[in-house]
Simulated scan of single mutants.
Amino acid sequence: MLRMETVDSINKIIDVNEEDDPELSEKLTQISKKHNAVLLACIAPYVGLKISPTKTVNAQMGLSEEFAVETAINHIQTKTDVQKLMLLVSSPGGLVQSSYKVARALRKTFKEIIVFVPHIAASGGTLLALTGNKIVMGMMSQLSPLDPQAQSGEGVVSANSVVDAHQFVTMLFDEVSLEDAPYSYKALADKFDGVDIRDALASLSLMEEYICEILEESGYSKAECKRISKSIVRGFKTHDEVITVDKAKKLGLKVVTHNDFLEEWNLFRDWLGKYMLQSADKHVIRFVISENLVRT
């Protein structure tokens, strides 16, 4: 078993290693051998880490995940030259920057990626799922829109909501002058900050650029990238809308059902089950490489 020799300060904030459960590892190794692929799990446990009597911290894409995935990739590359990856993603998302950097690192490292989403890959987790040349989904699988969150006053809301609300208020003045507008119209207009609106528009545009880059690396045409990125960023009612396997297909994503990979699907669900209910404040990163793939 490969031991992780990482700088102590980094090692304290990451949770990454080869899978060490004997029974599970043996089964996963057989899948790795069958597909000539590295297996990698990126799992955010559903139970947060209690750090005080009143505060719990949940796992989300951030600094820990950036260094953890980098560490995993570095160790994988010391053992094998294989460039096929089977990736398990279970994540509520997190920071846009971190999600993008992790997705980009995976796409730059592996030529072929098959992503498995047994349950939830939301927000930044959806961006990770888009690294797949194929995305395997089942009945309970969930992706989500990728509309970034923007600052509005003292809170954070969907950038789409900021833009849509501004457009709604602007329409109120289409048929009435500012001088003749009722007080309620003026009060609504006064609530908007031009800088917030500009930042919201910029964040939507930037997210579309990130998605296009990842999709293009995943084998989509430029036209498909543009259409899918616009739809997944701007085409849904709320940030929490569930994108099922059927909706994902309608978006144009390269989705297949779990029945196409039934053995792998069931085993990846077991892999998720091992970690999903443990208490943690960071994603668990585990990987498996069969012996036949190890560089001699």
Rank of each mutant, 00 (worst) to 15 (best):
M4G: 04
N11Y: 11
I13K: 03
Q30K: 15
I31S: 01
I31L: 15
K34M: 10
H35G: 01
N36F: 04
V38H: 04
L40Y: 05
A41H: 03
A44E: 14
Y46A: 15
V47K: 10
S52W: 05
K55V: 14
A59E: 09
M61P: 05
A68Y: 06
E70N: 12
N74R: 12
H75N: 15
V82T: 14
L87H: 08
V89L: 00
V96E: 11
V96H: 01
Q97A: 12
S98A: 15
V102T: 14
V102Q: 03
R104Q: 12
A105P: 03
F116D: 01
F116L: 00
H119G: 05
L127M: 15
A129F: 08
A129I: 11
T131H: 02
N133Y: 03
K134W: 03
V136Y: 04
V136E: 00
S152I: 03
S152M: 06
E154T: 13
V156T: 15
S161I: 08
S161H: 07
A165I: 04
V169L: 01
T170Q: 06
M171L: 06
L178D: 14
Y183I: 13
Y183L: 13
K186C: 07
L188H: 09
L188G: 08
A189E: 13
D190Q: 13
F192M: 03
F192T: 11
D193L: 00
I197W: 06
A202F: 08
M207K: 07
C212P: 00
C212G: 15
E213I: 05
I214Y: 07
E216S: 14
S218H: 02
Y220R: 00
K222N: 10
S229V: 06
I232K: 02
G235N: 06
D240E: 14
K249D: 10
K249R: 12
K250M: 10
K254V: 08
E264V: 09
N266V: 09
K274H: 09
S279G: 09
I285L: 02
V288A: 01
I289D: 08
N292V: 10
N292G: 07
V294Q: 07
R295K: 15
R295C: 05
